[in-house]
Each structure stands twice: as structure tokens, then as C-alpha cells.
Design a protein around this nucleic acid. Sequence first.
DNA 1: ATGGTAGACCTTCTA
Length: 260
Amino acid sequence: MRIATWNVNSIGARLETVLAWFRVEQPDVACLQEIKCVDEKFPAAEFEQLGYNLALHGQKSYNGVALLSKTPLEDVRKGLPGDEGDDHARYIEAVVSAARPVRVASIYLPNGNPIGTEKFVYKLRWMDRLACHAGELLALEEPLVLAGDYNVIPEPQDCDNPASWMGDALFQPETRAAFRRLRWLGLTDAYMEVDGAPGGYTFWDYQAGAWRRNHGIRIDHLLLSPQAADRLTGVLIHRDARGMDKPSDHVPVVAELDLG
DNA sequence: ATGGTAGACCTTCTA
């Protein structure tokens, strides 16, 4: 089973780009972030025609996450528990039907910039809530994949120039510590497990020729429960997607699980 | 060079 995560930066603006990639890659499951539309505006028919079932948690203008699967999606949860007042659409979770079912979440973790503001506080609180919920899911001792745009640069080798990210919410010590705490719960960063050697990026800013200069960062991650990590056979960052026509600033990351 | 781009959208916010 191939599971993809991709921050598409507006499904409305990105439809042809995303469809072109889907027609070639045909992932079994896809976690999309920043669809930037309400559920009714999501181009469902186009993906259903490619054989996908959909679960959507959309929002007008900002955020919005989606799950696409070639097999039915069950036990859908929209929104991250722990704060009834949080109205950002940043989390959707469902169980993907299969001989060995897999619980998959599409995550759009808050950016948190600028630091020193309520936005950074919200990011750290959101990471605490995610750790709390992940702990509950891990207790089920099932295959689990928490995939998405974490807006976290885990280590210095996950960016081109660490010094330039020192003041950024994505690379703050508190941010990196919160991401480490997630892993200490028992979650495995799929990319680090398979590729070993760091250096792959998943995001290049539209500005300042970041793509041309390869000024990238690795912030899109798939975190796996032990029951999923045991079955991990490969991970690929689809770097070429950044060079497509009308690209997102993020590229897809695809993990393959052998669930036979 | 205090820059530069992209998306949603009502003029500025988010990233």
C-alpha cells in the first residue's frame, strides 16, 4: 500500500497539477493539506473518476485537509481533540479498509510564525494536543500513519542553511523538542528509517529563487506506529513535482507499506 | 537590495 502526503496549496488553483500527478502515481491513499476550500467546493468528481473515496474537512480560504483512498474510509474523525474553541480545519483521520486496516491522519500543523506571538503559542499547544491524541491511538497497537505538513524542520541537516532558519517558528528549539516528544511516544519518521542519509527536502519557497538554488527544507513527514513501521518497505520524496507547471511549494512524499 | 512569490479575496492575511 502506497500512502502519499502532499500540501497542495489550494486544490482549486492546483487541480490540473494534482490530477496529472495522481494519474501517473495512483497512490492507494493520499493525505492532502491546504485544500483552501469548503467541502462543497472540493472537486470530488474528478478524484472519484480516478477511483478514490473521499473524506473532507475543508474551510473557506485557509487550511483544509482531505483523505483519499481507493478502498472505503471508515471511522472518520474531523478535528484534533483537546480544544473546542479551535476552528481551524487542520486534522482528519480515518481507517483505510484493507486485509490489514490502517488508520491514517492528514495533518496540517500550524506554521507558528512569527515567534513571540499568539500564533507560536497556538502551534506549541496544537503539538501538545497532537501528542496527547497520538498517545491514545498508539495504545490501540494498530498500523497507524500520521502524515502531513508538520511545519517542523527536525534537524539542521533538514534545511539548506540552518542559520537562516534560526528565528523561524519551524526551527525553534521548542518546536523541535515537541517533535522529538512525538517520536519518543513510539512513532517512527518514515523517511529517516528508509533513506538513512538526510538531505531530502519537501518544500521550497516560491520566493527568492529558492527552488533554483535548492534552498529547501524537510517539513512534510509520515510518522508510523510500530505496527506500521514494521511493514515499511520504502519512502520516496517526489522532488520532480516542484518542477511541474503551476507547482505547489511542497512536493508529495510517498511511503510504501507491505500489508500482505 | 530589509528584498522576493503565490493564493484567497475586498484590502490585507497567510504562508
